[in-house]
Design a protein around this nucleic acid. Structure first.
Lengths: 214, 214
DNA sequence: TTGATAACCAAGCGCTTGCTTGGTAGCGTT
DNA sequence: AACGCTACCAAGCAAGCGCTTGGTTATCAA
């Protein structure tokens, strides 16, 4: 079932544009095919890590989610931490590709900054990038070696942010602006509820933009 | 040794003004005496929770830190989670008292907002309020009932923030401003290093203030 | 001297955890 | 038909976990 409709990410609610992006990245060997056993494990683990946290998620939980026994997981991954590491790697790669695409469509500095903000908000709140919040919440659950790996992949993502902020931001230091912004956006995970109040994701992005845009 | 110099908070690096504040709160029965066995356990637990996280800290770790055996902990607390809950309660109470004192000393709206920002930054980075970051990082480790308790104590702290922001902030919605601000400040724990770069806590507070102050 | 109480020890129970081992079913290739 | 490979099962091990139990010591008031 290559590129099949059983794709876990698609079924989680991605737009058609994004699932095409996933397929392209899978073809390039940058992402694991979400339809493969390994890919289904990664998706299940990502959702569980978001829901319960890494420490409180057992390998038995993950196995049960895809319908196999706990021991069988170690046919696909060396350790539980290796699952977390791979989830973070793929999340980083996908979020970066998605944001690069969004930025490329904009014609003004302000538009590009707004695209970045909305992109990250969607990654946090929507199902656009399942597991994105883990990058912050479970960072310390990674071994130093794994942290190094993910950090290396993350650099390109952060560079894009800094470039956009240097062009459109009102603060002198783009790196500082990015850090303050990242905190605000990441924290919104803990209070923002897309439908339960007047504020929409788009409006939230606008409010944040008005703070940081010149 | 009542009010003694063996005070764990004092020895952790508090200024003299704050240790007097601690003593006053202890006298009112709002905080546990840091010199008591129970208080020493709370302090040790708070530092370990900050350092390693709640799930990765064992009751044996905490016991070893104060020089007793693991079982003896349960003479003082019903469960490991009860320790976390009490740490959060006392941290909340102390942080609120500290910020109220700081705000009361200011004469302008801008000064009060600046005081709040600096107060929370000191709680996060200095040793002013040991365990303050746990309130965010380990929130999900609390049972719903414990969350309710801490949330109730936290309300007064957040109300002060909103009042100050309503007076001095440049955003329409003080509650939204507080949430964006809280994210930025909390996240600074992961990147800001007080002495290893040019930016000081004071300067950071100034940068943040310039974003949110009218 | 006695008794009450707080603080702690020594030992270990019952359970969960990540992970290992040895084996097997199904499938495509030759 | 034989092989090799992927994906999985069945069973369980060793370690670590939170917590319990029964008993001991020190302190201090009556």
């Amino acid at each position: 079932m290559p590129g099949g409709s059983g794709n876990a990410v698609t079924s989680a609610g991605l737009g058609q544009g994004s699932s095409a992006l996933v397929e392209a990245l899978v073809a390039q060997g940058e992402l694991t095919d979400p339809a493969s056993p390994r890919g289904r494990l990664l998706n299940a683990a990502a959702l569980l890590f978001v829901e319960k946290g890494f420490a409180r998620t057992t390998v038995r939980d993950i196995a049960a989610e895809v319908g196999i026994l706990s021991g069988s997981i170690f046919h696909h991954f060396r350790s539980k931490e290796a699952i977390l590491c791979q989830v973070m790697r793929e999340v980083t790669i996908f979020a970066r590709a998605r944001m690069e695409a969004a930025v490329a469509q904009e014609r003004t500095p302000r538009g590009r900054l707004r695209a970045c903000i909305l992109c990250e908000l969607e990654a946090i709140h929507g199902r656009a990038v399942p597991g994105f919040t883990i990058l912050v919440s479970e960072w310390r659950s990674l071994s130093p070696e794994s942290q190094r790996q993910v950090l290396q992949l993350r650099e390109r993502y952060e560079r894009l942010w800094r470039d956009v902020l240097a062009e459109a931001g009102r603060m002198d230091d783009p790196a500082l602006a990015r850090r303050l912004l990242q905190g605000s956006l990441a924290h919104s995970y803990h209070w923002f509820r897309p439908k339960k109040q007047g504020l929409s994701l788009d409006e939230l992005a606008g409010q944040v933009l008005s703070l940081y845009c010149r």
